[in-house]
Design a protein around this nucleic acid. Structure first.
Lengths: 169, 169
DNA sequence: ATGATATTGGAATTATATGCCAAAAAAATC
DNA sequence: GATTTTTTTGGCATATAATTCCAATATCAT
């Protein structure tokens, strides 16, 4: 089993790195010259730092955000799933099945609810949702319950993880 | 009040556009030359299409993804919030207060649960979480209840919205 | 088929990224 | 506190990529 990401110890970020992370989390496709200008460094050290953050695994990737509604996915739902048994096999199988469904945007293993997983799914309409739920998800081995919430409005989404010591402790 | 995004009608995407959306959702910082190569177009029309998708609002932005744990945010929680009254004022105030909290990654107005909102928050540890919950969130006017779930593992995250007709209807 | 409209590909130009190295800054040592 | 060592920066040269323009091609409607 792969080791989890190393402890945060050893990652020392200065003001420049934090600024880079903050800006790239908001403007992932900004070019290096402008990024350098914004943080107050010349382009070469700025690029070196970005590469280092990528190589360190602090930056794990880049994504374009798309308007799901415009793409025809009018309905977003949160699905809370309960499993019968909490064995690694059950979980691994469920996760593999769910990963094969393109409608699933997110899958989190959670505690604190009566559920084991929370899925976030996007579909065209309620018919598609019903189909996904009844014909795909509830048929996965071990699934004993599913509770649906629908997203009425996205108030905040894709907000940057604080890279400054916003949260002193 | 601002009008919601126009109906999906009128957005006609061909094979190239769909490929662009799919690739950029996975590799948001890919350069135009490689993108062009992958979709089988020369760079100039490819770039034109990307710009068009951005201008149309189909692509709403770009984000770098960061490893929250590496940044010291070891704990991710889902918070279900109930409100006393469902008035626009209550909601607007809650949303503004929540938007001011950098730990809040996401805020969704939902139905189907006993809750009105689901928040996704990242914090350093349980002490920070307690502080956020008790001193910030539950003190917002109108909040009558909060139920916490903790994210044990991120199985899937930031998956692309289907741009192909994966989901025929 | 034919004309009108939209889209492409390639060349020229402009802008940006990248590698290199001397200079400056920061950190460690005495 | 001065000096050496280590790290980081800034600027230049070069390579790579973005952008614009337009003739050529493809698509669409009639």
């Amino acid at each position: 089993m792969p080791k989890e990401s190393p402890p945060a110890v050893g990652v020392t970020l200065d003001r420049y790195d934090r600024q880079i992370l903050d800006i790239l989390q908001r403007h992932g496709r900004i070019n290096n010259q402008e990024l350098a200008e914004r943080i107050g460094l010349s382009p070469s050290p700025c690029l070196r730092r970005v590469r280092a953050l990528e190589d360190n695994g602090l930056i794990t990737g880049y994504r374009a955000l798309v308007d799901a509604k415009r793409l025809g996915h009018s309905l977003t739902a949160l699905l809370h799933i309960s499993m019968d048994r909490h064995t690694p096999e059950r979980f691994a199988n469920f996760e593999a099945k769910v990963a094969a469904l393109p409608q699933v945007q997110e899958c989190l293993l959670i505690t604190g609810q009566e559920a084991d997983y929370q899925l976030k799914v996007v579909v065209h309409d309620m018919d598609d949702y019903q189909n996904l739920l009844l014909n795909q998800i509830t048929r996965i081995e071990g699934v004993t319950g599913a509770h649906s919430s629908f997203v009425l409005r996205r108030v905040l989404e894709h907000r940057p993880v604080p890279s400054y010591s916003d949260t002193p402790h």
